[in-house]
Design a protein around this nucleic acid. Sequence first.
DNA 1: ATTACTAAAAGACGAGTAA
DNA 2: TTTACTCGTCTTTTAGTAA
Lengths: 215, 215
Amino acid sequence: MIDVESLKKLALLGAMHRPVKSSSNEFAEYLSTSPQTAARRLQALEKEALISRKIVPSGQWIIITKNGTRELQEEYLEYQNIFSREREERLLIGSVITGLGEGQYYTALDGYKTQFRERLGFEPFPGTLNIKLDNQSLEVRKKMVGGIKIKGFAAQNRTFGGGKCFNAKIQEIGGAVILPDRTHYPEDIIEVIAPVNLREHLSLRDGSEVQIELC
Amino acid sequence: MIDVESLKKLALLGAMHRPVKSSSNEFAEYLSTSPQTAARRLQALEKEALISRKIVPSGQWIIITKNGTRELQEEYLEYQNIFSREREERLLIGSVITGLGEGQYYTALDGYKTQFRERLGFEPFPGTLNIKLDNQSLEVRKKMVGGIKIKGFAAQNRTFGGGKCFNAKIQEIGGAVILPDRTHYPEDIIEVIAPVNLREHLSLRDGSEVQIELC
DNA sequence: ATTACTAAAAGACGAGTAA
DNA sequence: TTTACTCGTCTTTTAGTAA
């Protein structure tokens, strides 16, 4: 485990851009710890090539290396991911189409139903709403990562594949986008489930435009 | 020390916006650690009111609380400070006001004076310059994180609180902004110290506009 | 399958010491 | 003053167990 805490403190002191002068005693106060611990942490960071030091009689000059900067940038990226999820990057827009009719069969299977109930918090209405995404939303869809994993299983002498779910709101109705690991559909078609019959509830027909907000 | 690592991982799973389902086993894989450690960390986060959990037979539903979100935001702010230090984001603009007159007393106390000398590199003129920030600068002030810690202490049968300092230049004069941990002032009022009498030196009166550049 | 507890092993911490 | 050791202590981790 790398000591990102100490590295971050050094960066806040400006050590990413120029060498900063400090001593273990001084740095210990920044970290609210003992000089020994501060010294050991600096040694460790140096050993991992995250900082580079020059020891002088009155302390040490410290600068963060390329490696260290990269480490901090990755950390920063994670926080950006957490906090700056622009609405446009969470919005899927498309039009309702009629699918292959498989959704009704699959969503009714206990193997899936129990997982949906457990992991999404609702039991889906049997059937999926198929949406053909517009070009811009296709890009959003391609960037969808993580999600809630649904496991495959075996039943009735065949296997049923797994997939990923993403909590979403379909015109204010709480539901989920499901992305099967294997599917017959092209990439610009997604399937949506919800606790209610979306077609009826939202008076949708083929061609109706819908907005789905990932959350 | 709060376990920001685990909290961040939960946020990346989306637990800031809705409850996410996980188990200690599953979460352990995210953290690359053992299920016991994962479970203990979740317990600790719950104890500190950073997350809230609901244990179910198949795992647990986890959501990050207001407290937890605040904690992550502060962490994020630090990284923003590291990577985007635009001049506008380091500039505090406001007007001189007359404070409660406490500054003169506090800055003269040995308990603070020695810390200022050691950690800031100068001994402050007794007295603080109080600045009422404009709206834009208030946003800058809210994002000020880290800083140089000044410890509280006990003397004369009472306690004196700690705070944080930020090196700054007040119209080319080297000084510091001090943010006490506890203060009677509202958030848009800051106190500035310097080795000289700023009011005299810069010919300031109440209402004079000053620019303070954090550095 | 879970969570939570216990106890041994591993690791981090900080006082003391030397250079 | 420094940094960098050693060594005893304390904390954290993890395997094992119970519910």
